[in-house]
């Protein structure tokens, strides 16, 4: 197991600092060796990942749907448009699971839609299962 997680890096896009702390803690529970970086808004992410030479790219992106200025949905579209980012699994987070949001996120290529209210309820199993799964996928040879 150790060897799988060691090089894994996760980018967290979330404006709520408390949620960032809690999410970091949950990811830490999955494996303490996962490298978690954090951005507060979508524009910053677009800037830093936008150029092809940007490196290193994160292995997984977890982003909140409700971000200030540019929404998570826009960022998702951006990632799916850019050929050098397209392969990165994106896990969308939201505080509700409004059907319209869930459908739209999947339509634009989200890999998972997580309801924060639910993952914090039952975080050990849910978060583990989902992050573990995508971590495994992200590390498969492309």
């Amino acid at each position: 197991m150790d060897s799988i997680y060691k090089p894994l890096s996760v980018l967290l896009v979330e404006d709520n600092k408390d949620h960032v702390n809690i999410l970091r803690w949950i990811i830490g529970k999955v494996h303490s060796g996962i490298d978690v970086s954090h951005a507060e808004d979508a524009e910053a992410v677009m800037k830093s990942l936008g150029t092809r030479s940007a490196s290193p790219l994160p292995d997984i992106i977890l982003m909140d749907l409700n971000l200030p200025k540019v929404s998570g949905m826009e960022l998702l579209k951006f990632i799916r448009r850019e050929s050098h980012l397209r392969h990165i699994p994106v896990l969308m987070l939201s505080s509700s699971n409004r059907p319209e949001d869930v459908h739209e996120a999947y339509r634009h290529g989200a890999n998972t839609f997580l309801n924060k209210a639910v993952i914090f309820d039952d975080f050990e199993t849910t978060a583990h299962r989902i992050i573990e799964y995508w971590a495994t996928i992200a590390l498969l040879p492309r």
Partner: peptide, 14 residues
Amino acid sequence: SHDLKEPLITVEGY
């Protein structure tokens, strides 16, 4: 649905 839940998530998470 969104804004009322956000603080709850924080309280519960911590």
